[in-house]
Design a protein around this nucleic acid. Structure first.
Lengths: 205, 205
DNA sequence: CGATTACCATACGGCAGAGTATGGAAAACT
DNA sequence: AGTTTTCCATACTCTGCCGTATGGTAATCG
C-alpha cells in the first residue's frame, strides 16, 4: 500500500488525480484565508495532502500559479458584474444591490480584500487596477442614469467605491458590526441613504 | 582604514554611532515603502550601510523592533489627533481638516496604509484597532457637535472613516487623481459636501 | 594610562521555501 | 500484453533570513 493510497482516503476526498484548476481553486482559497504572501508551493501542497512533485508537473513556477489563479478570479468577478448590469434595470436598485452583495459572494470578496492588501505586488497590481476601473465605471453609469452630471457622477462613484473599500478594510480589522445583524442592516441603510440620491427613509418623509 | 570608516563617509551621513531610535525610524521608513512583511533585519541593515551585528546589540529580535517602531508611530499619531482636537474649535472645520491632512503628514499616512495592508498580523492588529477607534470617536464627537443624534453620528463617523480608508487603498493602487491638482481638490470638495452636513457649494446656493 | 563599556564586523548554524532530477506506479493507448 | 503518458513521491541543491558567538575598535571612565 503506497503512501499515496493512504492519503486518498482522508485528505483528498474527490478524485484520485488533480488538475490545474484544482490547484488554482485551492490557491484562491488559501489567499482568502492567509493572503497572497502566504501562497507558497510546499504549504499549499501539504494542505492538499500531496507533495510539490505534483505541483511542478501542472505549473512551471509559483508565479505561474498566481497568474492563473488571479485570472480565474478576475474572470469570475467580471462575469458577476456584467450579470447584475444586465439583470437589474433600475439604476437605484443596481446601486443598492452593489452594497447588499458584500454579504453574499463571500469567497470572492475575501479574495479581493486580500488582493487589496497585496497591492504593490507586480502581479496583483494590474488586476486590481482593471477590476476597480470596471466597478467604478459601473457605478458611475448608474449615477448618470439617476441624473447626475458626468463629473459629479464620477466623483460620486469614486466616493462610493471608497466606502466599499473602507468597509472591506474595517472588516479585516474586525471593526465592523456583525453581518446579518440589525446593527449591520441599520448601517447599510444609512450608507444607502447618504450615497444614493432620491432614497428617503420613513422618518425623513 | 576600516570598512566602518569607509561606510561612515557616504551611507551614514549623521553621527558615527546609531541609537535604537534610529533603527525604529528607519524601520518605519522601510514599512512606508515596502510594507510590514518587508521589514527584515539584514535588508534593513544593508539599507543603513551597516551589519546586523549592530542591530542585535540594540534589539533582542525582529519582533521587538517592530513592537517599538509601532509604538513610536502610534504615540506620534495619537498626539497629532489630540492636537487638532484642541486647536480647532469649530467641528465643521475639524472634519474638513481631517480630509485635508491626508496630503500633509505623508510618512504617517503611508505607514498607516501599509499597516492596514498587514491587518491580521498579531502585532499590528491591536495597534490598528486602537487607532481606528480613537479616530472614529473623534469623528463621531464632531458630528454630534453638529447636531446629529448619537446613533446617526456614529454611523456617519464610520462611513466617513471608511471613505478615508478607501481613499488610502485607491492611493496604493494609483487609482486616485494626483494630489495637489485641481482634479484632486474638486474631488475632496465633493467628499466634504457629501459627508459634512450644512456645507454647501456655490452652485448649490 | 590601563580598564571597562559601547558599538559594530565577521563567521557560523539553522530553518523554510523555490526549483530540479529522477524514478515509480497507474492509466490509457496500440 | 507491451508501450507510452500522466501524475506524483523522494531526494537533492540553492538562496535568504534569523539568531548566536566571538572578537575588534573607539570612546569613556577611574
Amino acid at each position: 500500500m503506497s503512501a499515496r493510497a493512504a492519503a486518498n482516503g482522508m485528505e483528498r476526498n474527490q478524485r484520485s488525480t488533480l488538475s490545474a484548476a484544482d490547484w488554482e481553486r485551492a490557491a484562491l482559497e488559501l489567499i482568502s484565508e492567509k493572503g497572497v504572501q502566504a501562497l507558497a508551493v510546499e504549504p499549499l501542497a501539504r494542505r492538499m495532502g500531496i507533495t510539490k512533485g505534483s505541483f511542478y508537473w501542472h505549473f512551471s513556477s509559483r508565479e505561474s500559479l498566481l497568474e492563473q489563479a488571479l485570472q480565474r478570479w478576475e474572470d469570475h468577478d467580471s462575469r458577476n458584474l456584467n450579470r447584475s448590469l444586465g439583470e437589474i434595470k433600475d439604476p437605484r436598485e443596481r446601486l443598492i444591490s452593489f452594497f447588499r452583495r458584500v454579504g453574499k459572494e463571500k469567497l470572492t470578496h475575501e479574495v479581493y480584500s486580500e488582493l487589496c492588501a497585496a497591492a504593490g505586488h507586480p502581479q496583483v497590481e494590474p488586476v486590481l487596477e482593471r477590476v476597480a476601473n470596471r466597478r467604478i465605471a459601473h457605478l458611475s453609469a448608474a449615477f448618470e442614469e439617476l441624473g447626475l452630471p458626468e463629473t459629479t457622477a464620477m466623483h460620486q462613484a469614486r466616493l462610493t467605491y471608497s466606502v466599499y473599500l473602507g468597509f472591506l478594510q474595517l472588516q479585516r480589522q474586525h471593526q465592523t458590526p456583525q453581518l446579518s445583524s440589525e446593527a449591520f442592516d441599520a448601517y447599510i441603510e444609512h450608507v444607502i441613504q447618504t450615497l444614493i440620491p432620491g432614497v428617503q427613509s420613513e422618518s425623513q418623509r
